[in-house]
Computed example of a mutant assay.
Amino acid sequence: MQLTMHQAAVPPLRRTLTNLIGVLAKAQAHAESQGLDPAVLLGSRLYPDMFPLTRQVQIAADIARRGVARLAGVEAAAVADDETSFEQLIVRLRNAIGELDGYSPEQLEGSAGRQVTVPVGRGQTITMEGWPFLSSFVLPNVYFHVTTAYGILRHNGVVLGKRDYLGEP
C-alpha cells in the first residue's frame, strides 16, 4: 500500500492540533484552579528570545493549514493574530482543523512532486517539491511549535504528560 500525500499530511496534522486543544484546555483549567491570570501563561516563554505561548499556538495552526493549502495549490486565507485567551486559541485551532478537513485526497493528488514556494522571512522564499516540503518543513515546524507550547506550560506547572502530547492511540 502506498501512502498518499493526503494521508501523510492531514491525519497527523489534525491529530497534533487536536491534542494541542487538549493541552490548552488543561492549561486553562490549571490557571483557574490556581487562581492564575491566564495572561501569565499565554505570555510565558521558555527563553526571552523565543515567542510566547500564544504565538507558538498561532504558528502551529498557520503552518499546518497553510502547508496543506500550498500542497493543494491554493493560498490559505490570512488570519489575524489577535487571540488573547485560551478560548480564542482553541477556536483558532478548531478552525485550522476545519480547513484541513476541507481538503479531499484528490486535491493533494500529485503534490508530492509539485514545486512549492514558501516565504521564510525577510522577503526570502524557498522552493522545494511537495514531499520534502511536507516531511522536512511542515511537519517538523508544527511539531516544534506544539512541543514548545507544551514545554512552556509544563515549565509553568501545568500537569501534562506524554499522552497529552501524543493523544490516545
Rank of each mutant, 00 (worst) to 15 (best):
T4N: 02
R15I: 14
R14T: 15
G167F: 08
A80E: 15
A64M: 05
P140M: 02
L89E: 09
S44L: 01
L42R: 05
G35W: 07
P119N: 01
L134E: 10
G98H: 06
G110D: 14
Q124A: 11
T127L: 02
D49K: 10
I63G: 00
R55H: 13
G67H: 02
V23W: 03
D101F: 00
T148N: 07
Q56G: 01
G35D: 12
V142S: 01
P52I: 06
M1N: 04
A29S: 11
P140G: 01
M50H: 05
G161S: 14
V158L: 05
V146R: 00
A27G: 14
L134R: 00
L108T: 05
A80H: 06
I21A: 01
D82R: 06
L166V: 13
L17D: 06
F86R: 00
Q88C: 10
A77V: 11
T147L: 08
T127R: 03
G22P: 12
D82V: 13
I21Y: 02
H30D: 13
G35N: 07
A112S: 12
Q56N: 05
N95V: 14
G22K: 01
E32S: 10
H6C: 08
G110Q: 11
Q115W: 08
I126H: 04
T16A: 03
P105M: 00
R154N: 10
S33Q: 15
I152L: 03
T16Q: 07
T147H: 07
S135W: 03
A78R: 13
T127Y: 01
Y47H: 14
V23Q: 04
T84S: 13
D37Y: 08
E106I: 07
A25T: 15
M50L: 12
L139Q: 08
I59Q: 02
K162S: 11
P132F: 00
L17Y: 04
T148C: 07
Q124C: 07
S85I: 14
G73W: 05
L20V: 07
L41Q: 08
A112I: 05
L166Q: 11
F51K: 06
T127E: 12
A9L: 01
